[in-house]
């Protein structure tokens, strides 16, 4: 009876890269096969709870390294299963489902793109174009800091709202450029008012270069205004079958 950490699922017989470093004390990562699918598993630290920075990074690194070579279905962090249960309860009853999900992801990887405003450029634009904001800002500047609290909150609120209105148009431009190169797109709510795009793109491996080039084009078009950050190729975290 020993617990297994399950990183994700691959097709049975898939080539597993050498040197994967797991989060368990042995660091080993192996597979347990059943029929057409296999679970990528490792041991689990027995003396501490899971969830450290290193655990998260190990989870991601194992999956991204796999994804560089083969289709992988990532498990949500953290998945720990009794060893016997990996076949009896996880792979066995779900072989068909996992196999078809893997077939769907075959030859595809995820890229995650974040685009953020060059803050000063956009703030300046907002202040210059909105007289209410301009007036409020003037007022705030004349007042001592402790007296201007509510005005500053209001000012910030107006700026955030203006930024959010503005970013929709720009986000649409980015998506229009990149969506045609992706099989699927998962667009997330921006995590901050100056974030314009936070999205995952499922991309065919043989279109990776094209996707990359298109992202560069977007970066060039919006240079000085948007800062783009591209992560990938990654395991398809955002494209695992829905719950």
């Amino acid at each position: 009876m020993s617990p297994r950490y399950v990183y994700g699922l691959v097709a049975a017989g898939a080539a597993i890269p050498e040197g994967l470093a797991g989060l368990g004390p042995s660091g080993q990562v192996t597979t347990i096969e059943h029929g057409r699918v296999a679970a990528v598993v490792g041991d689990v630290p027995a003396d501490r709870p899971l969830g450290t920075r290193d655990d998260l990074i190990a989870h991601e690194t194992v999956l991204d390294t796999l994804a560089a070579k083969t289709a992988v279905l990532p498990m949500r962090f953290p998945a720990v299963v009794e060893e016997q249960g990996v076949v009896d309860e996880l792979l066995g009853p779900n072989e068909e489902f996992f196999a078809s999900a893997l077939a769907d992801l075959e030859g595809r990887v995820q890229f995650t793109l974040r685009a953020r405003y060059e803050q000063d450029v956009v703030l300046r634009e907002i202040v210059e174009n909105d007289s209410e904001i301009r007036d409020l800002q003037e007022r705030v500047r004349e007042m001592p800091e402790d007296a201007s609290y509510y005005d500053r909150v209001r000012l910030g609120e107006l700026i955030v709202a203006a930024m959010e209105r503005r970013r929709e148009g720009e986000a649409a431009q980015v998506f229009a450029k990149l969506e045609p190169l992706a099989v699927r797109v998962a667009a997330h709510q921006p995590t901050s008012p100056d974030e314009v795009v936070n999205a995952a793109f499922l991309v065919e491996r043989d279109r990776m270069a094209a996707f990359d080039a298109a992202t560069e084009d977007v970066g060039r078009e919006h240079a000085g205004r948007l800062r783009l950050r591209l992560l990938g190729p990654l395991a398809p975290y955002d494209f695992a079958p829905a719950e």
Binding site: V6, G8, L9, L56, H59, E60, L63, L73, P74, M75, R76, F77, A79, V81, L90, A101, Y237, D238, A240, P241, E243
Partner: peptide
């Protein structure tokens, strides 16, 4: 990765 991936 948080909240992403298959939920067993």
């Amino acid at each position: 990765i948080l909240d992403k991936g298959l939920v067993i």
